[in-house]
């Protein structure tokens, strides 16, 4: 796995470097003989380059979301979760206990697997992060909200009802709202957990275009269950299986000549 990192498959400069990452979740009421913790990630080494799109694939429950949540310390909010190893962002250790987590999350944005609109107006939803960061100037807010909604391909649908409640949006619209919300604060890294799971083919295509466009400015890690999507949007692909990183390489290599039989089984199973 480490060899992959040195053979030119990372971006020109590492943005994120993950080393020996273990993640444990607490087991509520373990049965006799059962360990009190369940290991969701085992000794994961993985780099993410600047301005690259890294796709994470693997069967359900293999730890993709867990991996994403480590990158902006969202596992801190899970009671009893324990993270060991090292993750650096621009060379800085982000797992250090004293690390400024709020600042980290401003730089590393996240779109969750389940879209959650706040019970606020559409405008306030998108402006939420900006306001949380202290922006209050109305013109600036309006402009940034429009930008973000346009990029997330939602502007045309909601421009006449920005005051309407975000909870009234459809599932796919809510997903795009969450993407706009994350984009509005202009993060350096964007973590996307199955961002197109609720989107129709047109919105999906638009989002994939957006990802290609965003790559100019930021680094993206995207979880997807669609091999085709991974092929379309990512430069590198990492395959997770039961908490371990099985294989990582250029997307073309992983899909056309996987080195690990497990990767091949998974990919061909999906394609076949």
């Amino acid at each position: 796995m480490i060899e992959d990192l040195s053979n030119g498959t990372t971006g020109p400069r590492g943005k994120l470097a993950v080393r020996g990452l273990d993640v444990f979740y607490r087991v509520e009421k373990p049965k006799k003989g059962q360990p009190g913790e369940n290991q969701a990630l085992k000794a994961v080494d993985l780099d993410v380059g600047v301005n690259e799109v890294l796709a994470l694939i693997g069967p359900s429950g293999c730890g993709k979301s867990t991996f994403l949540r480590v990158l902006n310390r969202m596992n801190d909010t899970v009671p009893g979760a324990r993270v060991a190893g090292s993750v650096t962002l621009d060379g800085e250790e982000i797992l250090a206990p004293k690390y400024d987590v709020v600042g980290l999350r401003r730089r590393v944005g996240m779109v969750f697997q389940r879209p959650v609109a706040f019970p606020k107006s559409i405008f306030d939803n998108v402006a939420y992060g900006l306001r949380a960061h202290g922006l209050s100037e109305k013109r600036e807010l309006e402009w940034r909200v429009q930008q973000a909604l346009t990029r997330a391909a939602l502007w045309d649908e909601v421009k006449d009802r920005l005051d309407a409640n975000g909870l009234g949006l459809s599932g796919g619209q809510a997903q795009r709202l969450c993407i706009a919300r994350a984009l509005a604060v202009e993060p350096e890294v964007l973590l996307m957990d199955e961002p197109t799971s609720a989107l129709d083919p047109i919105a999906t295509a638009k989002l994939e275009e957006l990802i290609a466009e965003l790559r100019e400015e930021l680094t993206i890690v995207i979880v997807t269950h669609s091999m085709q999507q991974a092929g379309r949007v990512s430069q590198r692909t990492a395959f997770f299986y039961m908490g371990s990183l099985v294989e990582v390489g250029t997307t073309r290599d992983v899909f056309t000549r996987p080195r690990e039989p497990r990767t091949e089984d998974y990919i061909s199973g999906r394609f076949g």
Partner: peptide, 27 residues
């Protein structure tokens, strides 16, 4: 108040206090 609201707010770089005052209590 759904845990998801809190997570979504924290993930946007809001502080815990901001999350409580702007998301949790209003909801």
């Amino acid at each position: 108040v759904p845990r998801d609201y809190v997570d979504a707010s924290l993930a946007l770089g809001a502080t815990k206090m901001h999350t409580i005052l702007r998301v949790v209590v209003p909801a």
